[in-house]
C-alpha cells in the first residue's frame, strides 16, 4: 500500500541515481599513411608554463611550478591537391596554381619541456611526472589554439611560392607565375 503510494518518489530517486556513462569511441588510425606534403616553414615558439595548485579547500599549503616549453610548428602545402588543369605551360612560360597552406605538425619534444622552478610546502607532495605532463598538455592545447594568430600559414605560402619558383627556374622556365587556389580556404 505504502509502496504503491510512494513509488513515484522511489522511481525519481532511481532515475536520478541512474548511470549516464558514455562509451568512448575507439580511435582508429592506419599504421602507415601516404602523404604528399611539402613542408615549407618551421616556427619555433616558446611558452612559460605557470601553475599554482592552491584551489582545493582542504589541502593545506601551496605548491607551484614553472616550466619552459618549446614547440616546433610546421606548415606547408599538399602537393596532391595540384590538378593538371592548374598547370598552364606556354613554351618557357608556366603558370601554376598551388593549394593554400595547411598545418602539418606541432611537435613538442620531451627535451624541450624543462622544469625551471618548483616550490612545495611541507604538507604537500611534489608534482608527479603525470601531473607535470598534464600541465604540458594544457600548454600544448594553448599553443594549438593560437596557431591562427602566429601567421605561420601565410609564411608557408610565401615560402612555398619561393621554393616552387626556384625549382621551376632550375628546370629551365623563364617566366613563372604562381597563384594560390582562391576556391580553397587555408586549413589549420
Amino acid at each position: 500500500m505504502y509502496f504503491k503510494k510512494y513509488s513515484p518518489v522511489l522511481l525519481l530517486c532511481m532515475l536520478c541515481m541512474g548511470c549516464n556513462k558514455k562509451e568512448k569511441q575507439l580511435q582508429q588510425v592506419m599504421a602507415l599513411q601516404q602523404m604528399n606534403d611539402l613542408a615549407t616553414v618551421e616556427y619555433v615558439v616558446t611558452k612559460i608554463i605557470k601553475a599554482n595548485d592552491n584551489k582545493t579547500w582542504y589541502k593545506i599549503g601551496d605548491r607551484k611550478i614553472l616550466m619552459s616549453c618549446k614547440a616546433t610548428l610546421t606548415a606547408g602545402i599538399d602537393l596532391s591537391a595540384i590538378k593538371p588543369e592548374q598547370v598552364n605551360i606556354d613554351g618557357r612560360h608556366i603558370t601554376l596554381t598551388l593549394p593554400h597552406s595547411k598545418m602539418i605538425s606541432v611537435n613538442i619534444k620531451p627535451e624541450d619541456i624543462t622544469e625551471a622552478y618548483e616550490a612545495v610546502d611541507v604538507l604537500r607532495q611534489s608534482f608527479t611526472s603525470e601531473e607535470r605532463n598534464g600541465l604540458a598538455i594544457q600548454a600544448e592545447q594553448q599553443i594549438n589554439a593560437s596557431i591562427g594568430e602566429l601567421g605561420i600559414l601565410q609564411t608557408a605560402e610565401t615560402n612555398a611560392a619561393l621554393f616552387v619558383n626556384n625549382f621551376l627556374h632550375r628546370l629551365g622556365y623563364e617566366t613563372i607565375k604562381i597563384n594560390f587556389d582562391n576556391l580553397a580556404t587555408p586549413k589549420n
Binding site: L32, T40, V41, V45, I49
Partner: peptide
C-alpha cells in the same frame, strides 16, 4: 581536488626557418 590550471602566458616566436621537406609517409605507432 580542483584541477591545476596553467596561466595563459604569451607564446613567443623564437625562430622562423624556411624548409623544403617532401613528406611522403607518416607512420603511427
Amino acid at each position: 581536488s580542483k584541477p591545476v590550471e596553467i596561466e595563459n602566458t604569451a607564446i613567443v616566436i623564437k625562430e622562423i626557418n624556411a624548409l623544403a621537406q617532401l613528406i611522403t609517409v607518416t607512420a603511427y605507432n
